[in-house]
Amino acid sequence: MGKTFLKPNSLSDNHTHYCPGCKEAAHGRAPAMATGIKRVRPDLNVFTYQGDGDLASIGMSEIIHSANRGEKFTTIFVNNAVYGMTGGQMAPTTMPNQKTTTSPFGRDVKDVGMPIKMANLLAALQTPGYIERTTVLKPKYIVKAKKAIKKAFIYQMEKKCFSFVEVVSTCPTNWGMTPQDSIKWAEDTLLPYYELGVFKDTPKMEEKNAK
């Protein structure tokens, strides 16, 4: 029987905990570390893989400044509206009234504000070139997400721009739901707020204008 799926060559057998690459930065600091790598070795392909607590809370400064400098690496931002790694605390992306371990009565937006839309926020900056929000809730979305991530890496390899792909996903464990319910909840609650789509694609715009 032929193989139907092979692990990509880029994935090694190294055991890593939350960072799938070859370096671990502290909570939120991955874009600064990626900047360090990219500035001294622009030929290397560099990406950061960050969650919503990491990127939108403690690492807000690092991501904004890296994006604004147009560092030519790729950020994959996984948004599941909760701190997953540490056990389900409230994240800056937690939805209004959503219950978490640190918002047991639901997120009170009068007290802590509305969830942060990172893709929208970064798109307000002039420098970053490619920003898209995708999701992996269903196969039709996964195909689009894959395309977006591929495009982000191509832009990096062409040394074009900073690229940012937000991936709206679920966290059944910390949401206290079955996987099926969590997909439904995400579609009903997250997607209307975190609208999918391309927020910015400067390389494509420039290509169009050139034509």
Binding site: A32, M33, T35, G36, I37
Partner: peptide
């Protein structure tokens, strides 16, 4: 010039790690 000393610390880490 990094945006903060916090960030600079990790820029050094990244550059040195490679």
């Amino acid at each position: 010039q990094g945006e903060s000393e916090v960030a600079v610390g990790y820029m050094l880490f990244g550059a040195s790690a490679c």
